[in-house]
């Protein structure tokens, strides 16, 4: 009995998410796109996340270099540290860590913002006035995430190389020109484009999950916290799942 009601709830939830997705797509192409709100969201999601993303990227490159150096030294291959760090950062660690950081900062923010708007009847007020909350609140946020997360990831990757350079120079040292030549020599276009493509999906997940959880939160102050929390957890899990699928697809279609 419990199992069947659990299955029914799960199917209902998938149905609700499907309807929300359909409504997002429909409203994206509807007349009267909210350009000003979209640009405001780009600023809020992109520019306001720059500090934490750059700091994380720098530390990522720095730590990865420090962790790799001793092992590579054992094989006398410490000169290949920049190559290894750049491939790891671009293909995997940069996009995933940036997306997870953004899930924590952006998805929770969106979930809490829309959740509190729901609780204080602001979304109802918008809807009942004849305005379109989906177009104003949801479309702009999701599209801003889709655009900003790839840009933030590229910046984080760049700063991670810088972190790697600092790391390597604190433990032996390497000429800047040589370091960056090795960094970029190790990379090919096939490393870059699958990684960039998946960040668009990560951006969509962060925006969509944040908006869905906030927009569908229950009425009550507790639900604001729950919406924010659920947004982070769900977005993070989906980022990891989508990353696994992307890696498998890339390995099969690009690297083979």
């Amino acid at each position: 009995m419990e199992t069947s009601s659990g299955i029914r709830n799960a199917i209902e939830k998938i149905g609700e998410e499907g309807l929300f997705l359909t409504s997002f797509i429909k409203n994206t192409f509807k007349k009267g796109f909210e350009w000003n709100e979209f640009l405001r969201q780009c600023y809020k999601i992109g520019y306001m996340s720059l500090g934490i993303v750059l700091l994380t990227g720098f530390i990522l490159g720095f730590v990865l270099t420090l962790q790799s150096l001793p092992t590579l030294k054992t094989f006398g291959a410490e000169n290949f540290t920049p190559n290894m760090v750049s491939v790891s950062v671009i293909r995997e660690i940069g996009p995933v860590i940036t997306a997870l950081i953004c899930a924590g900062k952006i998805a929770s923010g969106i979930g809490a913002e829309l959740g509190s708007m729901k609780v204080s009847e602001q979304i109802d007020a918008m809807e009942v006035s004849g305005a379109n909350p989906m177009q104003y609140l949801v479309v702009t946020k999701i599209l801003a995430c889709i655009l900003m997360i790839p840009l933030l990831t590229i910046l984080a990757d760049g700063v991670a190389f810088l972190g790697g350079f600092v790391g390597i120079n604190l433990n032996g040292g390497m000429n800047g020109l040589l370091y960056f030549r090795k960094t970029f020599q190790a990379l090919s276009f096939t490393d870059l484009y699958p990684a960039v493509i998946k960040t668009f999906f990560f951006g969509f997940i962060i925006g969509f999950v944040g908006c869905y959880k906030g927009f569908n939160s229950n009425k009550g102050t507790e639900s604001v916290g729950l919406a924010a929390n659920a947004a982070v957890v769900t977005a993070s899990v989906w980022i990891i799942i989508v990353d696994a699928i992307a890696v498998q697809l890339t390995s099969t279609l690009v690297y083979n």
């Binding site: 009847e121 109802d124 007020a125 809807e127 009942v128 006035s129 004849g130 305005a131």
Partner: peptide, 28 residues
């Protein structure tokens, strides 16, 4: 069209709290 012709005042006022009074009024 019906919703435009029908004003609904919520118990809380339901003001858009990220906007000023001026922006709240300009919104509809």
């Amino acid at each position: 069209e019906l919703r435009i012709k029908t004003g609904f005042l919520f118990q809380s006022g339901a003001l858009y709290d990220s906007m000023t009074v001026r922006e709240n009024l300009a919104f509809p």
